[in-house]
């Protein structure tokens, strides 16, 4: 969804707003963001989960890969629960809480890498396309072609070639982020290119590279970053889905989508094994989407329908 909304929004409003996003709104955009209670809660949740993932080795109570004798123990709040494993154990007797921390680590890492890489390449393409009019039609046509490959399809194709693993998933997710980011970046950059200071820069005899780096990139970067961050939730979701299908992370590594998939066979007697990691994915994606929407509304109110 983020993808299509960004698509629809990319060209027109972003162009006009490029300068406004950076100038007057910046003063207290963060405070305004926190005034939105849902957004504040979403940011808090995301922060807690990210901290949990970063400090997984210190917060985990068990080795995420080692089996214990108690198999399929339910969480502590049900009658059969044990204090030893407060979120219960999975089908192989591994501690779910500890696996969640490590699983969130891998899931978030895949998301960050993919959004970062795809966002970087995509923005660079978009910026260059806006900067060089001769390049523009060719590049944008290529982006349209790329856009016609859904992320899951790309993921399937890459895994078919490279074998299952985290690397093909990250590449597939990055590549599928490129066209969107390129379109958005181009829209923003075209707005910047129309500004007078660009002409002034040309007049004082700056080289193209200087103009590109000092004037275009610096003025477009913050708006671009916001739009890229909007993709985070959806990217995490697709990454977890690929892992759920058995195409991503390989066991014994813990990844949230894979954990949900491993819980499938125990759904009837121990639903918590699949439900807990699924809920964590849902919470991460929901928080990212809510925070992203609020951020966009605060910084770029014209996109708010």
């Amino acid at each position: 969804m983020t993808m299509t909304s960004a698509n629809a929004a990319s060209a027109a409003p972003a162009t006009e707003d490029a300068d406004q996003v950076t100038a007057p709104a910046r003063a207290h955009w963060f405070r305004r963001l926190l005034r939105d209670r849902a957004a504040a809660l979403a940011l808090l949740t995301l922060t807690v989960i990210i901290l949990g993932a970063v400090f997984a080795p210190w917060l985990a109570t068990h080795d995420p890969a080692s089996n214990s004798r108690s198999i399929m123990t339910p969480p502590v709040w049900s009658a059969m629960g044990e204090a030893e494993h407060w979120l219960g154990t999975d089908g192989q007797g591994r501690d779910i809480y500890s696996r969640l921390l490590y699983g969130a680590r891998l899931t978030l890492l895949i998301g960050f890498l993919a959004v970062g890489l795809g966002g970087f390449i995509g923005s660079l393409i978009g910026l260059m396309s806006a900067f060089n009019e001769k390049l523009d039609p060719i590049v944008m046509r290529t982006m349209d072609v790329l856009l016609s490959f859904p992320a899951i399809l790309l993921g399937l194709a890459l895994v078919a070639v490279m074998g299952q693993g985290v690397v093909p998933v990250v590449i597939a997710l990055s590549v599928s982020s490129i066209p969107d980011c390129a379109r958005v970046a181009r829209g923003i950059a075209i707005g910047v290119m129309k500004q007078e200071f660009i002409e002034a820069g040309r007049a004082v005899g700056l080289s193209n590279l200087q103009l590109f780096q000092r004037y275009l990139v610096r003025n477009a970067i913050s708006s671009i970053m916001i739009f890229i961050s909007l993709r985070f939730g959806q990217t995490i979701l697709i990454g977890a889905t690929l892992s759920f299908l058995g195409l991503g992370a390989k066991p014994p590594a813990a990844e949230l989508g894979m954990m949900a998939s491993q819980g499938r066979e125990f759904l009837l007697f121990a639903p918590h094994i699949a439900v807990i990691p699924s809920v964590v994915i849902f919470v991460i994606v929901l928080s990212a989407n809510v925070a992203g929407d609020a951020l966009r509304d605060v910084l770029d109110p014209r996109l708010q329908a």
Binding site: Q234, A260, V275, F282, V285
Partner: peptide, 9 residues
């Protein structure tokens, strides 16, 4: 919420 729900879930 619907957009954020994993389809497998």
């Amino acid at each position: 919420a619907g957009v954020s729900l994993p389809i497998f879930f």
